[in-house]
Write a protein that binds this DNA or RNA. Structure first.
Lengths: 235, 235
DNA sequence: CGCAGAATTGAAAGCGGTCAAGTTGCGTGG
DNA sequence: CCACGCAACTTGACCGCTTTCAATTCTGCG
């Protein structure tokens, strides 16, 4: 299950992942604790809610969603994670995972045992600082989501998600104008606090407009700037 | 502006604040970097969005709200902070504050210069771990808010906030059944993604029911258990 | 004591949800 | 490789919660 794969040092995702801004010799220390190349197929779970928290994970390829269940079984999709992004952070304080992570498509992840990581962060101040920063970033993104859910219409929420996915693709050097959604309409709706039907209707409406070409999960954005301004303006 | 006040060691809030689970001699080191007893009057701001990020803050007394502004000036209340709670965390990654913090009532705060704190956390692994935990907790609470905004009705959101305030009061040894809301209806609505009018209507409706006695900002909860079950059940 | 902001209340409209019924697309097994 | 079957997605009709707009009333502070 754990294949030998590229080290952090040689990983193309390094600039956006955990090991950015770390000097080469220290990189080597991180490399020693990271467990690489774990592969999970679509629908398989990476970790379960309530399982003991031992590691955080970096997505190497594919896409992962996390969700949590209310006591009554109601599902809430809490996040989508693309290559270079870190998941599992919300488990640290509870000492167990508080969400379940499943692969939306065949994915590979790097596992970062958290206890050993903490020991390393104590030795490498810049690593500690960077990890503080990653967690802070997560909090900051949650504030953005808060605004999205509190203040934005259904249309704006969907567009914001598309723009976010586009930006994250671009950051990895991929196209921000054409990509495939790794998640279902159901997941999108659940994440954005919308009914599936609403999401579906919005996609068809956007498809009829000039803003977007949608075909199933294939997305094409003719002009990012136009879409962006429609986000707080008019369609 | 900075008075000498009780050290962390003698602070009654220690068990729930930053310095919990730290050994006495290490406590001393924290004590040396914390700037205590800064007092801010109702309506005054503790830090502004876009100002350079230098410290996080622990509330000593009073209540603080944080909010951020969209480019168009639209306000979003992002959090309420009561004694023992830490604010300013979301500024770390951006290197500037991304929200503005204002006092809802006369408050005192302890300032924790973040650079020095980071240096200390490197020397005291358990402090690092604890700070990871505090940030993780913040992420975890954001997930709870996400569910509240995505899935819960207006009534449930308001009740959830009241229950949260009640629990946080109790944690400080105060009454969880009777307390005064530090924030306005406007702030409540803004935080919960509701119109002021909706919040007001809900309070009057709850007041008519047996669940709650509301008079302005004074709240009395006859039976917490009943209110709790009404949260996912029926009123 | 008077005023301004905060809170309440009412009426009407609209956005998004729910329910119900198709339609499409994809993975699986023959 | 094709056909089947189920899950994902779409579409339509209708309903209800919450917002919006507007008008008072209340409260706290100067």
């Amino acid at each position: 299950m754990f294949k030998r794969e590229v080290s952090c040092e040689k990983c193309s995702l390094r600039p956006i992942c955990l090991a950015s801004a770390i000097s080469p010799e220290q990189l080597d220390e991180i490399d020693r604790i990271v467990r690489r190349g774990r592969s999970i197929k679509r629908g398989e779970t990476l970790f379960h809610a309530s399982s003991p928290f031992e590691s955080v994970y970096a997505v190497r390829s594919g896409a992962i969603k996390t969700y949590s269940l209310a006591p009554d079984g109601e599902e809430l999709v809490t996040g989508f994670y693309l290559p270079g992004e870190i998941l599992g952070l919300e488990g640290i304080s509870q000492e167990e995972h508080t969400s379940t992570a499943v692969a939306l498509e065949t994915s590979t992840v790097c596992e970062i045992p958290f206890k050993r990581f903490g020991e390393l962060a104590v030795k490498i101040p810049s690593l500690q600082q960077h990890f503080f920063s990653i967690m802070s970033e997560e909090i900051y993104k949650d504030r953005t989501l808060h605004r999205l859910l509190s203040k934005r219409s259904a249309d704006e929420r969907v567009i914001a998600l598309l723009l976010s996915l586009s930006a994250r693709n671009r950051r990895r050097g991929l196209s921000g104008n054409e990509f495939r959604l790794p998640m279902s309409r159901y997941d999108i709706g659940n994440y954005l606090g919308l009914a599936v039907e609403t999401v579906s209707r919005i996609f068809t409406r956007l498809n009829k407009s000039e803003l977007l070409e949608v075909s199933g999960r294939e997305i094409k954005i003719p002009c990012l700037a136009t879409l962006r301004q429609s986000y707080t303006g008019e369609n």
